[in-house]
Simulated scan of single mutants.
Amino acid sequence: MTLGTETTGRMKRSPDVEDEVLDVTHHQDPGRNRLTPVVQLPSDAALAVVDALAGLVRSAHRREEAGPAPAGTLKQAQVFEEGDVFMLEPPFEGFFADRYLMDFYDTADRGICSRMHLHTGLRFVRMMTGPGTTIRVSSLSPITVRPAEGWTDPLSTFTDVLPGTPTGVHRHRHNVIVPPNSWVDMQIPRGVSHQFNAVGPNAVIDSVHPEESIETLREGMSGFRMMAQTIFLAKDKSPAATCADITAPDDSTRA
């Protein structure tokens, strides 16, 4: 199979810029994200898992605060737009993938949404929610949702308008709502837009980056930085009201 330039060439204009923004007006996703419902759990079991994983992130950030990583070394406790992060498994020579845990922020509590973005390498993400918490997953392309066998609280989907676009530019945003006490997996191809926003206090991500070191070399970065090869599709974050809603009454459908 021959890969086109959209999957093999560099994507960033300035590889060391961590807040690079791409004009959303002309961006077209080269593929689609795929979401797989995994399992729904009793609320106490779901909360125990989410709390345990979020606890690892919080402990890592306490260690980083007490003894910051030396300059020039990989900082394993970092802060992303969607939440605090801990690189659980760094890459090593001969193994170019890494894995991180994210303790989601509560979008409603913060009052802002994370931005739509894409990555220069593919991602595999497991999202887990506990009681009273949902995750709104969004993309500029329709998200393929695989069957949810045996789920009592199915995934809902709807389409709305992407906020914060330039004057006169209208882009549709495709949304899937992960309900409370649920695990879902999401496969994110390289260069495909996505956006995560949790509403509620109990949500974590367990994410694997199978080509982190490869994309670092491909994009020409001067040093390895966890998840630095991100390209945003908006300059500013939008108010929480633009991503906290989990239904669209006029055109809501069921996955």
Rank of each mutant, 00 (worst) to 15 (best):
A203M: 07
L122C: 11
S193L: 08
G9Q: 06
S193V: 10
H174G: 03
P30C: 04
A240D: 07
F196N: 09
S252V: 15
V79N: 01
K75P: 02
H194P: 00
D236Y: 05
V199D: 09
L118F: 14
R99W: 13
A46Y: 12
E89W: 08
P201I: 03
G168D: 06
P131Q: 09
G72E: 07
M186R: 08
D185G: 07
F95V: 12
V24N: 02
R13L: 13
I205S: 06
S139K: 11
G4R: 10
T7L: 05
F224S: 04
P179W: 13
H172N: 09
T120S: 15
F96T: 03
P210R: 15
A71K: 13
V125F: 10
R34M: 15
T134C: 05
E18M: 09
R63Y: 12
L233R: 01
Y105D: 01
N175D: 01
H172C: 03
G191R: 07
D160G: 10
T230M: 05
C113W: 12
A46W: 02
V204T: 07
T144D: 13
P210F: 14
R63D: 13
F224N: 04
V17P: 00
D153W: 00
T25M: 05
A240C: 05
Q78T: 08
P147K: 11
L74H: 09
E211A: 15
K235G: 09
A77T: 03
T7N: 04
S14V: 11
N181M: 10
V184M: 04
Q28K: 01
L118M: 08
Q76R: 05
F232W: 10
A52H: 06
E211F: 15
E64C: 00
V192R: 07
C113R: 11
A241M: 11
T230K: 06
V125A: 03
N181A: 10
C243L: 05
A52L: 01
D23C: 03
L53M: 11
G111H: 13
T36L: 12
A248C: 06
T159V: 09
L217N: 05
T230W: 06
R115G: 02
C113G: 03
G94A: 04
M127K: 01
G164E: 13
T157N: 11
Q28G: 02
R58Q: 01
V57Y: 02
A228D: 10
